[in-house]
């Protein structure tokens, strides 16, 4: 299992400090136009001033991402169970899953908004659409690629289909599910921000995507930068939480999330 050490955290943090300091100094030296590239201090000041609004927006985006994530994992696992138990179902539906994955999300989003209306519902659907594929493919792989020796062992003891699923295929799929969930977790924020950017929310439900949209429309570049930073942090948090869950669950197993 991979453990973080101080060097792995310290070096990127030091690199960030160097970049921010360089950026600040370069701005003082060359006096960039604020509308094109505000300096880090200006971004920090604006973020502080709008702290409450941006915090609320982060919560809204986080909630949409988390709801979509839970649906993706649940629905993705059910679809994988279907695909692994019926070659016919897989042959009928799997090509469309791949097709769905190849269509750009910005092309699907307007359709989703037409069908589900603006607001949280559409954002959650967009998050689900973008993040379900890694769960389906990984769990299907985990359910179908079991150790042949273990499959023979189950056959020797005349295990029925239910026992094969419960005692072999499902536990075998758990590390794959966690790998898929980790990829999916990163995508949920992309989906939520794109959804909010295109669908927006009600007056009381403004997410980071809305602020990115408004920031770009109104040339509030500091808000744009702050929203990008917050959505990135949210994405990192989602991936970190999924990884932590995986490591906790699999700490004593032979599998690793990188397998």
């Amino acid at each position: 299992m991979r453990h973080w050490n101080s060097r792995q955290i310290l070096l990127p943090v030091m690199f960030l400090i160097v970049v921010l300091t360089g950026w600040q100094l370069a701005d003082q030296l060359f006096e960039f136009k604020r509308i094109i590239l505000p300096n880090p201090l200006e971004i920090a000041q604006e973020s502080w001033a709008r702290g409450s609004q941006l915090f609320q927006a982060t919560l809204v985006t986080g909630r949409a991402a988390m709801t979509g994530f839970v649906i993706s994992v649940s629905l993705g696992t059910i679809l994988a169970l279907l695909f692994s138990s019926s070659a016919l179902v897989k042959a009928c539906m799997y090509p469309y899953m791949i097709l769905l994955q190849t269509v750009p999300i910005v092309a699907i989003a307007p359709l989703v908004i037409i069908w589900f209306g603006g607001g949280l519902g559409s954002v959650v659907v967009i998050v689900t659409v973008i993040s379900i594929f890694p769960v389906v493919t990984n769990v299907t792989t985990g359910l179908t690629t079991v150790d042949p020796g273990l499959a023979e062992l189950m056959q020797l003891y005349q295990a029925n289909r239910f026992q094969m699923l419960l005692k072999l295929r499902l536990p075998n799929a758990i590390p794959h599910l966690l790998t898929g969930a980790r990829v999916s977790a990163g995508l949920t924020i992309v989906g939520a921000v794109v959804g909010e950017y295109m669908a927006g929310h009600g007056i009381s439900q403004r997410g980071l995507g809305y602020y990115i949209f408004m920031g770009s429309q109104n040339h509030q570049v500091e808000v744009l930068y702050a929203s990008i930073l917050l959505s990135t942090l949210l994405g990192i948090m989602m991936v970190a939480l999924t990884s932590l869950l995986g490591r906790t669950l699999l700490s004593r197993w032979a599998f690793s999330l990188h397998q």
């Binding site: 273990l150 023979e152 075998n172």
Partner: peptide, 23 residues
């Protein structure tokens, strides 16, 4: 088998118990 073919998610006790559960 040539490989021990143990279930990595089961303890020693649970691996040994498996044939009894199946039958």
């Amino acid at each position: 088998f040539q490989d021990p073919t143990l279930m990595p998610w089961r303890t020693v006790w649970d691996n040994v118990r498996l044939p009894m559960e199946l039958q």
